[in-house]
Simulated scan of single mutants.
Amino acid sequence: MQRNFIDRLKLTLPAYQNPAQSIADCLDISLNEAYKKIRNKSALTLQQIVRLSDTFKIPIVYQPEETPTVTFSYPKIEGGAPNMEDYLLDLLNNLKLIQAAKEKHLTIVTDDIPLFHLFKYPELTAFKLFFWFESLSSTPQKFERSFVTENITAVARELNRIYLEIPSTEIWAKNSIHGSLEQIRYAFEAGYIGDHSLAEELVVQLRYCLTDMNMYAMSSKKTIDISHTFNWYNCDVLGTIAYLAEMNGTKVCFNRFNTFNFLKTEDPDYCLQTKAWMQSLMRKSVSFSGQGEKHRNKYIYQAFQECDALIKEISGDRSGPGMSS
């Protein structure tokens, strides 16, 4: 338990910061004693673990022998409505921890387009956050381009940039694009989007996002840097959204719930089971990366057809749906 706790503490520190010095300062002990605790030669007391946990915001994970329990943490939403900037900043902190690791990889199993791809496009970012907000709001409102602040847009762009620099594997469900398209269709038909051109722009940006995916898959990397590897798979049957981050031998799992929020755990057994499940899915999936051109082109073509069909629906309805007050 202590070794696992110290390893997770190290991941929270900048590369230039000495873990032993940080522990010594926090616990008011000598540097020599701090090194002993790092090497597991001296036990941390419960009070010391609690102090380190509070200082470095590291959950205490303990699992009694033969008891299959898992402890999760999650971003708490106060008052029933999320603060989108705080939520994105929390995502950014998690992503920066992964990026900072010398050895890292992120595996995603999803039935929706991973949000980090969408964050490249301002209107699509604003709409996705609007849709999430509406799922918790009791007061209907219309979607406008100005729904999010410049600060939120900037954080979203940074999330996209950092994600592109993290080696990753994505396993998409057969209809992963369907969810985003249906959200746009619903918002337009229900009158949340009153501007036809804005609704069409959202679908166009979704097409651009798919074009990005195609480019990443063709080269098996997300940027010109060969270390930013990308593997893309398609699996016919998926029923969940899960992220598994691997950093210098430590694993962290994120499971989505309540539309957009996530449960986070560093439980070793749970993460190992999640990794085994993901690897099993890959073996049963069709690869879109590198030489998987035939299957990838078919998937992209069908997705483009769905996008074009929705644009045609929107442009064909110029009467404009109205939303009751």
Rank of each mutant, 00 (worst) to 15 (best):
H105E: 14
K120D: 08
Y121L: 14
L95Y: 02
D112E: 13
I113N: 00
L115V: 14
K120N: 12
L106H: 04
E103Y: 05
L106Y: 01
H117P: 15
N94A: 06
H105Q: 10
L118N: 07
H117N: 15
L95K: 06
E103T: 07
K96D: 05
F119D: 05
D111S: 11
E123N: 15
D112K: 13
L91Q: 13
K104T: 00
D111G: 13
H117F: 15
H117V: 12
A101Q: 00
N94K: 08
D86L: 12
L106T: 04
H117K: 11
L124M: 13
L97Y: 07
H117R: 10
H117D: 09
K104Y: 02
D112C: 15
D112Y: 15
Y121C: 07
L106V: 07
F116K: 06
L88R: 04
P122I: 02
A101Y: 02
V109S: 15
N94Q: 08
D112A: 14
Q99I: 10
M84I: 13
K102F: 04
D90I: 05
L97I: 11
L124A: 06
L92F: 02
N94W: 05
L89R: 14
K96G: 04
D111R: 11
F119W: 05
T110H: 01
Y87F: 06
L89D: 12
Q99V: 10
T110R: 00
L124K: 09
L92I: 02
Q99K: 15
L88H: 02
H117G: 13
A101E: 02
K102H: 12
I98F: 01
L92H: 00
L92K: 03
